[in-house]
Design a protein around this nucleic acid. Structure first.
Lengths: 335, 335
DNA sequence: TTGAAAGCGGTACCAC
DNA sequence: GTGGTACCGCTTTCAA
């Protein structure tokens, strides 16, 4: 079923059908109705590829994220959900593209103009994908910000400040010896921004509150979390407060503490930056800064559409600092 | 940068450039090299929309899933990850489309021919989307199967059998009074197939082993899990075994049991069908049939590409029955 | 108010 | 081995 077919049956030209559909030119009520009848009868819908070619826009947005070496985290996945839903509301589809800057699929997305704009996840402080995108002038938004965040649109959590808040919370409860459970060594070495900025925030906060503490790298799974607790306690059995950036290791962290005979929050306070689903799944429920993943997805879409549209983009970025939700995993330090 | 531009610079016709790229017609080594040089210089990549229009295929697959009323479960999201990765390996992109049969985005995907084929998630026993797809003759694969599974391609977990295995496992440990923690009331009422077939399997298994038991509907979150435990124990304090289909409520289930003073597995054995990430996150780790979400994604892609390609599709469906991974949450019933 | 026709950027058939 | 050209299906300018 093509527009030509519709035109023939409605005894008008193809252009008239097109205009009847788009409304970009007045069409007499009589012919409009006649055309609409035929369209409904035939169940016609314009071909997206043809339209994209003619209009020069695809009404599709790209989501670029690194291939999952192991698993995606809940945060990432909720974020994707929020993003896709938000795009759908605005009549955009989302094309998923695993792959880094050198990747085939990345080339496909941008180079072949499969999408009108892109969202980049899992940003590193130095990020080749961002550099490439800037060079091409292609509209894009990042989740997370590079070391030079000006000149790009982004939405990000203020991991530095959030970790500081967590430390502050523990400090106010009287804890003096802390540990930070960060993401995996590879991610940190790769310059993964949330891990790096979280770590910086931890160190700053320790200095500020005159506390002692140490950072640990930890894989994104329960077993790593368990192992991490062992390291923490063997390095310094006097630790009474843990801040975690590692959602997927949380269950293991709890188990490790249980195995070591440390009860939460009596013997050990735990807090961190974690999606609410995980925070509420563990017992005792985790006092944490809840990651507003879905909202971040929505914001990313808004920022991107701003840059795609004809209007100048007034707001370029959003730095979020969600409050700490008090649950049950932190308590006063033993005197 | 268009193919015409490349042709001009390489002093050949557009068709020659096209053939040099596709290899569908021999091109002399000399001109091939000349063309390639220009292409590399200019960084040319063919426009996807134009190519899709000319070839009549988009090299894009659609993923249709209901909009997240609340959250996606881990299973769903891991599944998406596996699917996207598998598609990328085969040089396909994946277009995400939240929305049911009546939805705008569903129309867009199929009607506008944005994709060459589609994968439908969250299948119901009677599913309007499946009916529509079959009517259009559009290639598609479902995750989960309808009440009449013949004539469609699908990949599914054998929830009925898996629940039976879980019950059997508990029966062998001497448990006589069981409870099934299913998904939410809405989902079950909507005819959500895994929930329905799981429930059927539970009832069959109870009869087979001459056990008593009861099914519970439970929302996809920790709080619902906690509430569900209360209901179970107030209905029958003698229950010593729980089978759960509800991944997202698992943490709450554990907490509820803890609150009720039931220790796992001493006072209560728990098992079910759950992704390994969740199974390993809880303490004690859950003995469960691990949902192979990522692999299911891969299989779905394979099945779909089979149906899209020119070759006849030999295999139409895959019913998976992963083994129960023994962990730490089940034990013998008290004598 | 409507129609004809020239694009959009490729592909592939028909010639030579 | 290569060039010319008619498509693919839709949008939009130009003309009537």
């Amino acid at each position: 079923m093509t527009i030509g077919e519709i035109a023939r049956r409605a005894r008008v030209s193809r252009s008239t059908v097109s205009y009847a559909l788009s409304g970009k030119r007045p069409v007499s009520e009589a012919t409009r109705l006649r055309i609409q009848r035929v369209i409904d009868e035939m169940g016609y819908q314009p071909n997206a590829s043809a339209r994209a070619l003619a209009r020069g826009e695809t009404r599709t947005l790209g989501l670029v994220f690194p291939p999952a070496s192991t698993h995606y985290t809940d945060m990432q996945l909720d974020f994707i959900g929020g993003l896709v839903d938000a795009a759908a509301v605005r009549d955009y589809d989302v094309l998923m593209s695993p792959g880094g800057a050198e990747d085939r699929t990345f080339h496909r997305l941008i180079g072949e103009r499969r999408v009108d704009g892109a969202i980049l996840m899992e940003i590193r402080l130095q990020d080749a994908r961002v550099d490439r995108m800037r060079a091409t002038g292609f509209p894009f938004v990042t989740i997370g910000r590079t070391a030079q965040p000006d000149g790009t649109s982004w939405v990000d959590l203020d991991h530095g400040r959030l970790v500081q808040h967590c430390v502050q919370h523990l400090a106010q409860l009287g804890h003096r010896r802390l540990a930070l459970v960060n993401r995996s060594e590879e991610l940190i070495r790769a310059g993964y921004e949330s891990a790096r900025r979280g770590q910086d925030g931890f160190e700053r906060a320790l200095a500020e509150h005159e506390l002692t503490g140490r950072s640990y790298q930890c894989g994104d799974d329960a077993a790593s979390g368990e192992a991490c607790v062992e390291r923490i306690l063997s390095d310094d059995p006097g630790v009474t407060g843990i801040v975690t950036l590692n959602e997927a290791a949380l269950g293991g962290l709890y188990r490790g503490l249980g195995t070591a005979g440390r009860e939460i929050p009596r013997d050990m306070s735990v807090t961190g930056i974690v999606g609410s689903r995980w925070a509420e799944a563990v017992t005792p429920a985790l006092t944490a800064a809840d990651v507003p993943s879905r909202e971040m997805g929505r914001i990313a879409i808004d920022l991107l559409l701003e840059r795609i549209g004809p209007s100048a983009a007034p707001l370029r970025h959003r730095l979020l600092t969600p409050p700490i939700s008090l649950r049950a995993s932190t308590g006063p330090a033993a005197p």
